[in-house]
Write a protein that binds this DNA or RNA. Sequence first.
DNA 1: AACCCGGGGAG
DNA 2: CTCCCAGGGTT
Length: 307
Amino acid sequence: MIPFYKRFIDRFPTVQTLAETDCDEVLRYWEGLGYYRRARQMHAAARVITSEYNGQFPTEIDQVRALPGIGRYTAGAVLSIALEQRHPILEANTIRVFSRLMMLRGDPACSENRRQMWEFSKLLLPRRRVGDFNQALMELGSTVCTSRDPTCERCPIARICPARAHGVQAQFPEPTPKAKTIAVHEAAIVLRCRRKILIRHCQPGERWAGLWDFLRFELSSTKMPLAETQIIEQVAKSTGLTITRLQYLTTFKHAVTRYRITLTCHEAFCTSSQSTVPPLCWVTQDQLQMRPFSTTGRKICELLNGG
DNA sequence: AACCCGGGGAG
DNA sequence: CTCCCAGGGTT
């Protein structure tokens, strides 16, 4: 994380720098971190701060919360830590601490329990050093009041913890019922024409919006040659281009939220590059490194470069 | 209120 | 492999 942070701050030292940069460039510096929406939202927020607040980060909680990508937690954290304003926070670490201090039954993620924990966090809030207090709560959850095997012997508030008093700290927080995983098969196609490769700008609402990707489709079957037939059809349908040769490259497995994706990568060739319009774009192999890709997209780029 | 998003580190 | 993570937005 630290190298990413340093590189990012070096390139975008101020809100103004961030605001005047293309989103593509910002995403390139974010590439590999995941949560790409956050990069786009931070970029959008920088533009709001420049246009609406004369480049000065707002100090009213409602103004801060109205910024793209900033919700109740982030607004409270920024204003309490940076400006010593008296706002509570609630996030993964403090949820765990509170679930033990409150002996909270049921899924801590459910809305009623969330509401109760926000109320609890308000009650706990000190009059002074709110920022330190909020950070200390998170640090306590991160280093002492841990998810598995909390070290209560080292906990500064063990004496007021009812879960500890009853010796039931291991029963909290109760596990969130987890959605079962779904197996998905996808195909990525590196489509070549002369010296160019076809890539696609992922659109708003799609996964990896704002990033670039190779042609990618969901497959109903991985059985050859049925998959090949699907690929040829899908390429024709989405680009109007006709594949003259299709070759298997490799297979990646990766997980996205509850999906377990098996991605089979192919190389394909066509003789005409006509009638391809945005969001499609033909680029040379060298130009691939200028564009932000998801991690799987970048793996395919590395494959092409002989990685 | 339910659901969506990404990837890496730890165990 | 599973669990976990300094959440917010959309529907």
